[in-house]
């Protein structure tokens, strides 16, 4: 079977979704880990940190060639995941030209498993906002303030975060984005493993539990960032 055939059948298209999804999940692990460095500024840890740990980590990431290449991969991954999703959405909805008078609704399935396109779209809108807040000034326009830690010269991404999250509306949008992410992951995480062929009950239970923990933990950590800054716990 040719690769083009392999990835373009109805099953193959879902494999593309699963593989890119898995890649994006792995990115989330890195992203949430790195950003959690801002919590070092909390009273409990080091109130004088002022984003030092986070900025240094961000600098490390920004200056690594490997990570910069991964970054391109990440954008490609998001694009493929999103485009394939919309293609599938259009194709799948066209398979039933005449619909039902009484809809199935959520009989037998969860609302979020049936709303992955909607949740994904919300995430995509969120991403556009998110990228314009941080990635664009950091990587494209270079408009962030410089900051120096010992010999390391870098820009103060932390200050940018603190600035952005002073606006309650933006904080609310970020929290909404995290909630969308949570629901999206709650279905996506375990479905990825099913699509990749995990049929053993024990492994499915593991995938389900890991998915549940992941889709709560990661979005909560992310959401706590703008909240903490807005409430002045950080910064």
């Amino acid at each position: 079977m040719k690769w083009t055939e392999f990835f373009t059948s109805s099953v193959g298209k879902k494999l593309v979704m699963a593989l890119t999804g898995l890649f994006l999940i792995s990115f989330l692990v890195v992203h949430v880990g790195l950003n959690s460095c801002i919590f070092n500024d909390l009273e409990w840890f080091d109130p004088n940190d002022n984003g030092r740990m986070f900025n240094k980590a961000a600098h490390f990431m920004g200056s690594s060639v490997v990570i910069r290449i991964m970054e391109i991969g990440l954008f490609v991954g998001i694009l493929i995941h999103a485009i394939q999703a919309y293609v599938l959405y259009v194709q799948n909805t066209s398979k039933r030209k005449i619909g039902y008078k009484v809809k199935m609704g959520t009989k037998g399935s969860t609302w979020y498993s049936k709303s992955m396109t909607l949740l994904g779209t919300l995430l995509l809108l969120f991403l556009i906002m998110h990228i314009s807040h941080f990635w664009v000034p950091s990587r494209v326009t270079g408009t962030l303030d410089p900051v120096q830690y010992g010999d390391t010269h870098t820009h103060d991404l932390f200050a940018r975060m603190v600035a952005v999250f002073q606006n309650p509306w933006i904080v609310a949008l970020y929290v909404a984005g995290c909630i969308s992410l949570g629901w999206h992951l709650l279905h996506g995480f375990q479905a990825t493993f099913r699509t990749l062929g995990v049929s053993n009950k024990k492994y499915l239970v593991m995938a389900n539990s890991a998915g549940l923990i992941f889709s709560i933990l990661v979005p909560v950590l992310f959401a706590l960032m703008p909240i903490s800054i807005y409430l002045g716990w950080i910064g």
């Binding site: 109805s10 099953v11 298209k13 879902k14 494999l15 599938l88 194709q91 799948n92 398979k95 199935m104 009989k107 037998g108 399935s109 969860t110 498993s113 049936k114 992955m116 279905h187 375990q190 479905a191 493993f193 099913r194 699509t195 990749l196 062929g197 995990v198 049929s199 009950k201 499915l204």
Partner: peptide, 26 residues
């Protein structure tokens, strides 16, 4: 169409065929 694992199929299957079969197919 293709499968999104909403599991509605399993819920209505009169013979209660499990969606794990779809995983196996994958």
């Amino acid at each position: 169409g293709s499968c999104t694992f909403t599991q509605a199929c399993e819920a209505v299957c009169p013979k209660e065929i499990s969606v794990t079969n779809i995983s196996r197919l994958n």
